[in-house]
Simulated scan of single mutants.
Amino acid sequence: MNRQTSHPEPAASQQSSTVQLTVRETTTAQLPPLPDPETYRTYFANPHDYMHAPQDAKAGHFQQIVLDLRTKDLFFHGEDWRVPREAQSRIPASGLFAPFHWLNVPDIIYWVIDSGIPVAERPYLTVDEGNAFAHQLAPLAQTLLDHLLPVPGTDALDWSAESASAGRDIEAACTRYQHPPKGRRPELVNMSEAVKACPEIVRPEWAHYTDARLDDTAEYLNRCGLHHHPAIAQALGFGPQTPRASLVGTRAWLYQNRRNAQTLLASQLNTPTVGDAEDTHS
């Protein structure tokens, strides 16, 4: 019997169903007060010992934009700079949007706003300014949400080039320079696009891998796929050494590829051969 492994459809057909994002406005009572700029300036205008600095001088970048994937809420948030970090209930550190590689999608994603007393381009935001900023970013967060990919057979999600690019646009907007969005990054390549451009990267044994081996393969492809298969980047019009270039959505694609292979095999096993059909009608 000639068994073939069918490949998943392009990433767009695998994306999560669209769920409308909500901007949850933050109240003054939910935020710590803004640090006192005069305390900060007085401290740094004189010889100082940072270990004994007043809290206002050590507040740092405590303001954030948070996207909760469980509730589909986007909101402005401020860590309480007056309380030691270990003593407060904080947004999980694992949710920080700092993607060196696109392997996991946390339940809560947050971006640090590059604001502060010494940041002339972007002083600390008031609650009204923070809420307005969250509303400004809502279309980008909606794009991120709409284009996350389900990982078949799990409750997990995976990045796509579209969702990752939207995350980078939010990251850029949170800098002190508030860079405008760039849209889809060409150096981020969906695994489905890579397979279409370079079908030979697909290995037949992937269809039989365990979850653990698929996860290892997804990480390898994400980190090294473009470097080890330069034909992908060449086919898509950029160099494999382009900064921050990466294959994205590798885990979702691999799990879907395995599911497709299992479905195909099951249908072939349940389909009578020509000889079986003749015996049935004899």
Rank of each mutant, 00 (worst) to 15 (best):
P47M: 01
K58R: 12
A53S: 13
A12I: 13
T42Q: 15
Q15R: 15
D68Y: 02
T18L: 12
P33Q: 13
P47S: 03
K58H: 06
L67E: 00
T39C: 12
Q63L: 07
L31P: 01
F44G: 05
F44C: 10
D49E: 09
P10F: 02
L67A: 05
P32L: 04
T22V: 15
F44K: 10
P35I: 02
Q63M: 07
S16W: 09
R24F: 00
A57R: 02
T39L: 14
Q20S: 14
P37G: 04
T27V: 04
L31C: 14
K58Q: 12
K58G: 06
E25K: 01
T27D: 14
S17V: 10
S16K: 12
D56Y: 01
E38C: 01
N46W: 08
V23S: 04
H52W: 08
Y43L: 14
T27K: 04
E38W: 06
P33I: 08
A29F: 13
T39E: 11
Q30A: 15
L31R: 13
T39M: 09
V19P: 01
Q14R: 15
Q64F: 08
P32S: 07
N46D: 10
P54F: 15
A45L: 04
R41G: 00
A45G: 14
Y43D: 04
E38F: 05
Y40C: 06
V19A: 11
V19W: 08
P10A: 10
Q63Y: 07
K58S: 10
H61Q: 13
Q64D: 02
D68W: 02
L34W: 08
D56T: 06
R41W: 11
H61E: 13
Q55Y: 03
P37N: 02
P10Y: 03
K58A: 11
Y50E: 12
Q63G: 03
L21P: 00
L21S: 00
T22W: 00
R24W: 00
T28M: 10
L67H: 03
E38K: 14
A59R: 02
D49G: 00
Y40W: 15
Q15V: 07
M51D: 13
P32D: 10
V66S: 06
D56M: 08
H61G: 01
H52F: 12
A11R: 03
T42V: 09
E25R: 07
R24G: 01
